[in-house]
């Protein structure tokens, strides 16, 4: 299968890439290509031009400074899953990246592509949301920062404008007493998440919970935060019983049902996966 014809651009800077995008309304960014190329081969997308950002130096690399980790948009899942910095500072993100697709997909797919594509069953949106990531975006008018909670708008829709590029993701480094984890229940054939849960838990000096966050992929049209569960955990002793009781209150009103799993099934699965992610996060806190 061939994609339909397109022009190919390989800019060497973000500025150049943004310029090409703003001059070509039918152009699309190409990163790892592992969502875009399959849909172009099926002719479900036929952009007039591709802007290949894969070789832009500013979009590569993982660096740590001032209590945060900066991950370039074109960093692959393989690099993230195997980065000692990410494993230490944001284990939920390393775990989520390491469970995406298969080893071939993990060598090509990028964090920027995953978050920009915003497939409801993608693994990284919930992790970015739970960890309180900040997304850096550049467009023709300059650069701006968007919090993960404002980035995911709806089904495969983000806060990105067509002529904007996601340049990097900033994740706070876990402080002492904070742990995070990602637990995924995957569809046995596609490997995508029927439900993926990302949890972050902080324990105070006395051992009780001073902060929590629990977010899900795969259960509704976009990554969602279970704020009522997080609120129920704060002040608790984070025992298994406390986690089970907080998760028992989970309600995802717009849970989606499809040919693979009903909305009710996903809702129940989210309780199980949520509790697993919270327990692992607690053990790391």
């Amino acid at each position: 299968m061939y994609p339909s014809k397109f022009d190919y651009h390989r800019p060497s800077s973000v500025q150049e890439a943004v310029q090409i995008l703003s001059g070509n309304p039918d152009a699309k960014v190409l990163a790892g290509g592992h969502s875009l190329i399959p849909v172009m081969k099926l002719r479900l997308a036929a952009p007039a031009a591709l802007v290949d950002i894969g070789r832009i130096g500013a979009l590569q690399g993982i660096s740590r400074s001032n209590g945060s980790l900066r991950i370039g948009a074109c960093v692959t899942y393989h690099e993230i899953a195997n980065s000692a910095d990410v494993q230490a500072a944001a284990p939920a993100l390393a775990e989520a990246a390491g469970q995406i697709g298969d080893r071939q997909v993990r060598y090509r797919g990028t964090i920027g592509g995953n978050l920009s594509h915003a497939d409801p069953a993608s693994d990284l949106p919930a992790a970015a949301l739970a960890l309180g990531a900040t997304l850096h975006v550049t467009g023709p008018g300059g650069s701006r920062s968007v919090s993960a909670s404002d980035f995911f708008v709806d089904l495969m829709m983000t806060a990105l404008q067509p002529d904007e590029i996601l340049t990097g993701v900033e994740v706070p480094v876990a402080q002492a007493g904070t742990g995070s984890a990602y637990a995924k229940w995957e569809h046995p054939a596609s490997g995508y998440a029927l439900c993926g849960a990302a949890a972050v838990v902080t324990r105070g000096a006395g051992g009780s919970c001073t902060g929590a966050s629990l977010c899900f992929n795969g259960v509704s049209s976009t990554a969602v935060a279970a704020t009522e569960v997080a609120a129920g955990l704060v002040g608790s002793d984070l025992s298994d019983a406390a986690i089970d009781s907080a998760v028992g209150n989970l309600s995802i009103p717009d849970a989606t049902g499809d040919m693979f799993a009903s909305a009710g099934y996903r809702q129940e699965l989210a309780k199980v996966m949520g509790a697993r992610a919270l327990r692992t996060a607690r053990d790391r806190a």
């Binding site: 299968m1 190329i37 081969k41 894969g54």
Partner: peptide, 27 residues
């Protein structure tokens, strides 16, 4: 499969196993 699923098109690209049906030659 020609749809990025089966891996029969796997080759090493700079030493890494990738599905060559899902990579453009220009990449």
């Amino acid at each position: 499969c020609d749809t990025s699923q089966c891996g029969s098109c796997t080759i090493l690209l700079d030493g890494q196993a990738v599905k060559s049906c899902t990579v453009l030659a220009v990449q």
